[in-house]
Design a protein around this nucleic acid. Sequence first.
DNA 1: CCATTAGTGAACAAAGTTGTTCCCTATTTG
DNA 2: CAAATAGGGAACAACTTTGTTCACTAATGG
Lengths: 192, 192
Amino acid sequence: MSPTRRRGDALTTAIFQAVLSELAESSFEELTFDKIASAAGTGKAALYRRWSTPAELVLAALSDPATGFGEPPAPPGTGTLRDDLIALLEQFVRALDEPRGRALLPLIAHRHRHPELFEQVHRLVIRPHQEVLLSVLRQAVDRGEAAPGSLTPRIVSVGPRLILLQAWEGGLVDSCEITSIVDEVLIPLTRP
Amino acid sequence: MSPTRRRGDALTTAIFQAVLSELAESSFEELTFDKIASAAGTGKAALYRRWSTPAELVLAALSDPATGFGEPPAPPGTGTLRDDLIALLEQFVRALDEPRGRALLPLIAHRHRHPELFEQVHRLVIRPHQEVLLSVLRQAVDRGEAAPGSLTPRIVSVGPRLILLQAWEGGLVDSCEITSIVDEVLIPLTRP
DNA sequence: CCATTAGTGAACAAAGTTGTTCCCTATTTG
DNA sequence: CAAATAGGGAACAACTTTGTTCACTAATGG
């Protein structure tokens, strides 16, 4: 019945994908080695050999470049603030449609129950993305496209937050909504 | 040890508060008659006598005027859009600091797992509040304070959404943040 | 003061679920 | 081809936890 017995990275990647999928449709507390093993089509022993807690596994899956957020996002560098913002938010929306993105939602929602885990997720995933957004705004300020006062964490967070809630409510966010957020909210908000 | 044996409404109210508290610090799926009974300091039989499912209990607690959102919110009617918005959002923030408000968060977060329950919560709580916000905007349009194009569900949702995510992340939202949201986002967004 | 209603607390068992390990064998490597 | 490594699957038991009901008694009301 099994096509072949996987080993090494092939198996690890399958396990990571299983972790993120399970996380995406439940929550961290419901994550068990049992479910992960069956979702990955392997036995629990293969998991126990490598990780000892679900938290380790989640962080490993999120850190992996293939399945998670292994490398920080690239700055778009389109030359204008508007296009940079649209590119970043579209990238964000695309990520939220993948398992790695959907896996973030339960972690964010229950952040207060697992502060240490969320802290690492924040460092690993959220902060780098905020940094990119901030650098985009900084360049816009240098070009005179945005007010220097826009460089606050608060303002930086508005775009991702609106996207996040939209994704939470409706599922996928279409690009028309992204441009609407950029043009009606973010650009007015940062105008010099 | 028990001061007195409660009956009728006194007991019902205690049960409702227990339901909302339990919900506030966990989620709907973790809500059991067991936990509710101990939180309310009563036995499970008293619950079984009245309700047969946790969903019924949640809706009853949210519908109750004393513990939940029994009566729709009053329009502020301050005379200006800015003050109306601030009043509404502050009311919202205050509700989110009470059990009835915190109980909404898990219901919203897991809305896809319990569509029928969320649908009723939406009708009972969310829609009436949206209606008030919309009527405030409508009055502002009539006075010429806001653009007629502002009367969209999307724009109406921006304020509550920003508050909601802020509450999710940080706990309580102070009024300085509310005025900042109103002045920097909502007013520019609705300007004629 | 008695009868009725309704709350309390515990009993009771059932059920599902999870952590952990062991054996067998497919794959790899020398 | 043989030895070593590591995956697959299942066994195993234990535990937690819940739903449901029963007998007892405090409160109510005639």
